[in-house]
Design a protein around this nucleic acid. Structure first.
Length: 473
RNA sequence: GUGGGUGUAGCUCAAUGGUCAGAGCGCCGGACUGUGGCUCCGGAGGCUGCGGGUUCGAGUCCCGUCAUCCACCCCA
């Protein structure tokens, strides 16, 4: 019998949980500071809640739960594991519309499930870290979410990320200008989204493979290049990659029909200058994103050499499918798994996270000494240390070896001689030094020798940042 | 969902169709009965993924199946 977990799922061993909790702790703290409130929803939903919300392809990727009892043989499903956190949120908003505030901002960090084929870096069970804001169409919402996500990444130690912005209706407007038929537009957007990854030739080939008129495709790409120039080569104030003049050019090209979308992006660029993440924000005309429910601004976090760490956008009519009337909404999702992978590769976790769970281990001299060992452990715990007790009497060498293999920095040896003198032999396994300490002083002795961040004390909250001077455009 | 690769010890991998399937790392024990890392010595650990077939003989060849990895598709 195989003892591996099913494909696409993982067991999380202690070290991995510690890394995850470190990341989640920071993300949650930032989200709380931005006024988002916690929400959790069930692992599974009624199946009709999920079907039809993600597009044709994604319906197949929903994990369905067979009916139970006498209907089991029918093979029908009436429940399904949640596919993302956005649709359950939309359901919650529709259900509790009278109890939730007018502007409801929530964060949600829970696993989701997809019946996908597992691949490198892709799982069938994985965590999402979402923020969403319900009830306002103002670009303030997009800007605040970009700021929150960017600040979370900054506090995790990321410096080289970009927050890319585009607008779904600008894209569809451009597709209409070159007269790509509506039926092909979703497919065209998927192809366009890969432009950065596959390059000019690749994206043209992809358009062709999708049966899109090559003349129109070429025209579209040329148009985008013209409007935005090479985005990465036009740095402007505050890192914003598109000038007012180019936005005007875009406005002319689209005519009157999508001027609201251009205004929206212009507004976002203007407002973002008042946030700590202004220097990270770029307009990228190639950004399309897959999910079919986006209606407005779309955003994505990109890290050089890594790819996407998350993304989001505005979806003003998803809630309407539950409620009958549209409620504006905008959300952003961080890819927790990839963040952890990248931070592990780049060694971005502080030593406390990588280090073991125990500050000091009490050895057991013999069976008679077990009670006193437990008493010493209690004293050390009371002194604020994380303490393990070797569970049985054993050769001292094996006990020390065990502590060493678990990365425990200190061993407290309580032998017959020490007990007779009221002392404890404390050995620092990092240096090999050992000295006899009066029993009452052991806790203080060990704490003084642990690095400050190793102490089990509540963290001091960070000093708030200096408010950033808004730069004039 | 489509195409290809790989399944041998806990892990990474050897083994022309031919004795009893090996190595490194890890694990356990000893050298070292009051002290970890280094070194040396010893030990445990395998229905060679599973089922069938070819053959005097299969870890090796063939078919099926399952698992896994890579590419595509799609996505976080």
């Amino acid at each position: 019998m195989s003892t591996k977990p099913p494909g696409g799922t993982r067991d999380f061993l202690p070290d991995e949980i510690r890394r995850r909790e470190y990341v989640v702790g920071i993300v949650r703290d930032v989200y709380e500071r931005y006024g988002f409130e916690p929400l959790e929803t069930p692992a599974f939903e009624n199946i009709e809640t999920l079907l039809g919300k993600y597009g044709e392809e994604s319906n197949k990727l929903i994990f369905k739960i067979l009916r139970r009892g006498e209907h089991e043989a029918s093979g029908e499903a009436d429940l399904a594991l949640r596919y993302d956190l956005t649709v359950p949120l939309a359901r919650v908003v529709a259900q509790y519309q009278n109890e939730l505030p007018k502007f409801f901002k929530r964060y949600q960090i829970q696993p989701v499930w997809r019946a996908d084929r597992p691949a490198r870096g892709r799982f069938r069970e994985f965590y999402q870290c979402d923020i969403d804001a319900i009830g306002s169409t103002s670009p303030t919402v997009e800007v605040e979410q970009m700021a929150a996500v960017g600040e979370a990444l900054s506090r995790l130690g990321f410096r080289d990320f970009k927050i890319l912005v585009n607008h779904r209706r600008i894209l569809s407007g451009l597709l209409n200008v070159v007269e790509i038929p509506v039926a092909q537009q979703e497919s065209a957007l998927i192809a366009l989204d890969k432009w950065t990854k596959v390059g000019d030739k690749g994206v043209e080939a992809d358009f062709a493979a999708r049966g899109i008129d090559s003349l129109k495709a070429t025209q579209l790409l040329a148009m985008l290049r013209n409007i935005f120039a090479a985005p990465d080569e036009v740095p402007t104030l505050a890192g914003v990659m598109i000038s007012r003049a180019r936005l005007d050019e875009l406005r002319n090209l689209l005519g009157s029909r999508e001027s609201g979308a251009v205004d929206c992006v212009a507004e976002i660029l203007k407002l973002v200058r008042a946030t700590p993440v202004a220097e990270h924000v770029y307009v990228d005309p190639r950004l399309a994103r897959g999910l079919s429910y986006y209606t407005g601004a779309i955003m994505e976090i990109a890290v050089e050499g890594i790819g996407s760490l998350g993304g989001g956008g505005r979806y003003d009519n998803l809630i309407g499918t539950f409620l009958g009337k549209d409620v504006p909404a905008c959300g952003f999702s961080l890819g927790l798994e990839r963040i952890i992978v990248v931070m592990t590769e780049r060694n971005m976790f502080p030593p406390t996270v990588a280090r073991g769970a125990v500050d000091v281990m009490v050895t057991i001299w013999n069976d008679e000494g077990r009670g006193d060992g437990l008493a010493l452990a209690a004293e050390l715990r009371h002194a604020g240390l994380r303490v393990d007790v070797y569970p049985e009497s054993d050769k001292l060498g094996k006990q020390v070896k065990y502590a060493s293999s678990r990365n425990v920095p200190f061993v407290a040896i309580l032998g017959d001689d020490e007990r007779a003198r009221g002392e404890v032999a404390v050995k620092d396994l990092r240096s090999g030094e050992q000295q006899a300490i009066r029993r009452a002083d052991v806790g203080q002795f060990v704490r003084a020798r642990l690095n400050p961040e190793h102490r089990r004390e509540p963290r001091e909250p960070r000093e708030p940042r200096e408010p950033r001077e808004p730069r004039e455009p």
